[in-house]
């Protein structure tokens, strides 16, 4: 049974058709369902996240989904700063790195959709002064926003 309702799929298809400009890649570090579970490495939300990302990717030709098994590509994941799964890395016209750790459910699902659109367009709704300040940052900076689904 799909995670997204028919109404949600219809709405999101329309949003993506209207607002996605260039392709967006979702790189999903996860636990594939076909492998044996290794004690201590069970991922409680990977199945749900896998299904949700597959459903999203099916709603627009501009969304590409790359699904990687965390344990099989661990070195690549570590190079990318991924130490927990499920982890979503968005790639498009973004200048920095945009990542979601854990299932993007509840309010964060809307954040994911908005970020996909921003990444596709390479622009945001930030004020011009904010963009100017960000463009002049002297050092790399890591921003972590901790949330819960409710």
């Amino acid at each position: 049974m799909p995670i997204l309702s028919n109404a949600d799929r219809e709405y999101l298809s329309q949003v993506f058709a209207e607002r996605l400009v260039d392709p967006v890649k979702i790189r999903l570090y996860t636990q594939k369902l076909t492998q044996l579970n290794i004690p201590g490495y069970e991922c409680m939300t990977c199945r749900e996240t896998n299904e949700l990302m597959e459903e999203l990717a099916s709603l627009s030709d501009k969304i590409e989904l790359e699904t990687l098994d965390f344990l099989q590509v661990r070195q690549q994941a570590v190079r990318e700063g991924i130490t927990e799964i499920p982890a979503i890395v968005l790639e498009g016209k973004n200048k920095g790195k945009v990542r979601f750790i854990g299932v993007p459910a509840g309010y964060e699902f809307a954040t994911l959709i908005e970020d996909m659109i921003d990444v596709s367009r390479g622009t945001t709704k930030l004020q011009p002064l904010s963009r100017e300040i960000l463009g002049k940052l002297a050092r790399p900076v890591h921003i972590q926003v901790f949330v819960t689904p409710t």
Binding site: G96, K97, R99, I101, A105, E108, L137, T148
Partner: peptide, 9 residues
């Protein structure tokens, strides 16, 4: 310069 993570804690 920015890496942004949203973490479902």
């Amino acid at each position: 310069k920015v890496t942004a993570d949203v973490v479902e804690v």
